[in-house]
Amino acid sequence: MELRQLQYFVKVAKKQHMTQAAEELRVAQSAVSRQIRHLEEELGVRLFVQKGRNLQLTPAGSLFLSRAEHILTDLERAVGEVREFLDPEAGEIRVGFPHSVSVSILPAFISCFKKEHPNVKFRLKQGTYTSLIRDVTEGEIDLAIISPCPETHELVKGEVMLTEELLAVLPPNHALAGCKSIRLEQLKEEPFVMFGEQYSLRPIVMNACLKAGFVPKIEFEGDETDTIRGLVAAGMGVSLLPELALRYSTHIEPCVVKVDPKVTRTVGIIRRRDEKLPPVTELFGRFLMEFQPSADPGRPMDRLDGA
């Protein structure tokens, strides 16, 4: 069995069409057909059946596809690790992140890291809490910045980078806008602007409100921090947002007030459990753990050693 046969088989399985697969592989269709036929003869089973103009995997083909993909992924990773070993300053770092991190600390991470390692490339993928864990476990990315950082998980290992405070976000003309600090229960009669149910920040806010003795009345939902900030600033309700996500300015600003009792969330990095990272990614992981929030909103992150 040849590596080329596996590559052709996976491509045909994905495209469900011999001609389209051949075009993407930049080889003749006859070459793809021949390699698929040889593979079926070696396995002693049909991998595809014709369905209209497309090809459909047989049950045996579906079983073989999952194994073939793992083989090719492992091989690609092995080749990448060898190349990075030879030149660790020119590797690629595959990292995922949620939106609340992308607008606050991720640009600082990458900018500072690139100053020290200018030839390293980044492949970035934004996602929700659930999708980031899935992407790490399935090998789509090697690291993910995530919140909250999972304390225990069967497939990923998490390390807490920082714990940040959630602050009350109020319309500028709100009666409590001038306060330095408020009790969370003071917002029990207010309409809330909340992240959607697929976002990990929502249960943190919900649980904090329940502990304060009320169920928040959700009037609006948003998918991004800027959306929620804008709706609150426009007087549509109140919200709780992470401190780091409030360190930059937009054209329309709500009022930000501390909350008592304090509501916090952890921000950490996750990787596949019991699996060695590529050297350059391991280097970036250690780099992330050396950062902490700066007191100066204009400089969002500083090195712990003050460098």
Rank of each mutant, 00 (worst) to 15 (best):
G306E: 03
C179E: 15
A144K: 14
E116C: 02
L57Y: 13
I36W: 01
A208S: 06
V160W: 01
I105G: 06
R299L: 11
K211S: 09
E41I: 07
I269S: 13
R273C: 07
H17L: 05
R34D: 08
E185H: 06
P254H: 07
H251W: 05
D223N: 13
P203R: 03
F97H: 15
V95Q: 02
Q126R: 08
G237S: 11
S104A: 14
I36K: 10
R273T: 12
L75P: 02
V263M: 08
G139D: 06
H17N: 15
A60L: 10
E221Y: 03
M301Q: 11
E41N: 15
V267H: 06
E159P: 02
N173W: 03
E164D: 08
T225D: 13
E189H: 03
N173R: 10
K180F: 04
V193G: 08
E243G: 07
P107D: 07
H251A: 11
F97V: 07
P242H: 03
I36G: 14
M161S: 04
A21T: 02
K11I: 01
L240P: 09
Q56R: 15
T73G: 11
M161W: 00
G96P: 07
D260T: 12
L72P: 13
L25G: 07
N207E: 14
G61S: 14
L241V: 13
F214D: 07
G306L: 01
S66M: 10
